[in-house]
């Protein structure tokens, strides 16, 4: 663990490409390091908490690592999402739920500028990371993606060995590395995959099962020391056992990372998320285009137990979507 925490500090100072610190909270984030066992959160795998337990320990307002202020997202002329304002809390798991086409994945991909890769995609409003606008003209999108990692719907390991999959990230971002072996072991350990693959690190990642591949992708993301991990329906291609392992893993990762997950599975949101945001789509009266909007955002227990908005209740109870 020690190798990782020192490198966290390096990473957070060395990678500010704009020449100034990202924010004053940056130093805070750097010194944060892993939360020691026995500190504020202590949910080992043996004490998986129900949302109710956690809800009582959550701050009333999320301590925003990433904040959206009145965000609209367009694909060329088409307005995919409108008026999204919410804070994603540090060391929390936030779930984005809603029917298909409500823009939740679009919002997720806007948070680390993966939408930049789609021609014509643009964002208005402000998305800030520790107070700094990630779409600011002086911000390098590469830098944003290093701090805010992403795990995709379909496991997408590189066609290389397990070892090379993990080592790739630290190599390309130019991390100062004392021992790549240690990083690989640490990342795989944190992703709960080490014991299963430690004897076949040089074998192709394609030989792993779907669930193992997805944990490898999580390990790969962890290896570059992000602060936030975005997960776009990470379990939708996995069976229930593999899904359950990923959920346990998320619960452990929460101690050190901020996780934002898009899911179609409402039970999954209820099981893992501290807070849940419900999106839905509204058809425009003039054009008929369906534009996503944020309906309600609250502590998960409240969202599933006593939602304020009737649309949330209708969706959660299975009456639409």
């Amino acid at each position: 663990m020690s190798t990782f925490s020192t490198r966290t500090a390096e990473a957070h100072t060395a990678y500010t490409s704009t020449g100034r610190p990202m924010t004053s909270e940056d130093a805070d984030a750097a010194s944060r390091g892993p939360v020691p066992a026995g500190a504020a959160r202590h949910f080992g795998p043996e004490s998986t908490p129900s949302p109710g337990d956690r809800a009582s320990q959550l701050p009333n307002k999320p301590i925003g690592v990433i904040s959206c202020e009145d965000v609209d997202i367009f694909y060329s002329r088409f307005r995919a999402v409108t008026g999204v304002s919410l804070d994603f809390g540090r060391n929390e798991i936030t779930a984005l739920i809603g029917p298909s086409g409500c823009g939740k994945s679009t919002v997720l991909r806007a948070l680390n500028r993966m939408n930049d890769l789609i021609p014509g995609a643009r964002v208005t409003g402000r998305i800030t990371y520790h107070g700094q606008d990630i779409y600011g003209s002086d911000v390098d999108p590469i830098e944003v993606r290093r701090r805010i990692g992403m795990v995709f719907q379909k496991p997408n390991p590189f066609p290389k060995s397990i070892y090379a999959n993990i080592a790739y990230g630290p190599k390309v971002v130019g991390m100062k590395v004392d021992s790549m072996d240690d990083i690989v072991e640490e990342a795989l350990t944190r992703a709960a995959l080490w014991d299963e693959v430690k004897d076949k690190l040089k074998e192709s990642a394609y030989g792993l099962s779907g669930g193992q591949q997805q944990r490898l992708c999580i390990a790969r993301t962890i290896a570059v020391n992000p602060e936030v991990i975005l997960m776009d329906e990470p379990c939708s291609a996995l069976d229930p056992i593999a899904t359950s392992r990923i959920e346990d893993l998320m619960d452990e990762l929460r101690q050190e990372y901020t996780i934002i997950i898009v899911t179609h599975n409402m039970q999954q949101a209820a099981r893992v998320a501290d807070r849940t945001a419900f999106f839905t789509a509204k058809a425009s009266e003039e054009t008929g285009d369906r534009t996503g909007e944020l309906v309600e955002y609250d502590v998960t227990a409240k969202m599933f137990g006593n939602p304020s908005d009737s649309r949330t209740e209708a969706y959660i109870s299975g009456r639409f979507g």
Binding site: N112, M114, L117, I142, E143, R145, R146, G149, M150, F152, K154, N156, P157, F158, P159, Y168, G169, V172, V173, C217, R220, T221, V224
Partner: peptide, 26 residues
């Protein structure tokens, strides 16, 4: 597959690194 490129870019690789180390070798 596009997923290979996205996986690389999401780790903070530049487009050039992605082509040179992932797409072209594949």
């Amino acid at each position: 597959p596009a997923e290979i490129r996205q996986g690389s870019l999401a780790l903070g690789a530049t487009p050039l690194q992605t082509v040179w180390r992932q797409t072209l070798p594949s």
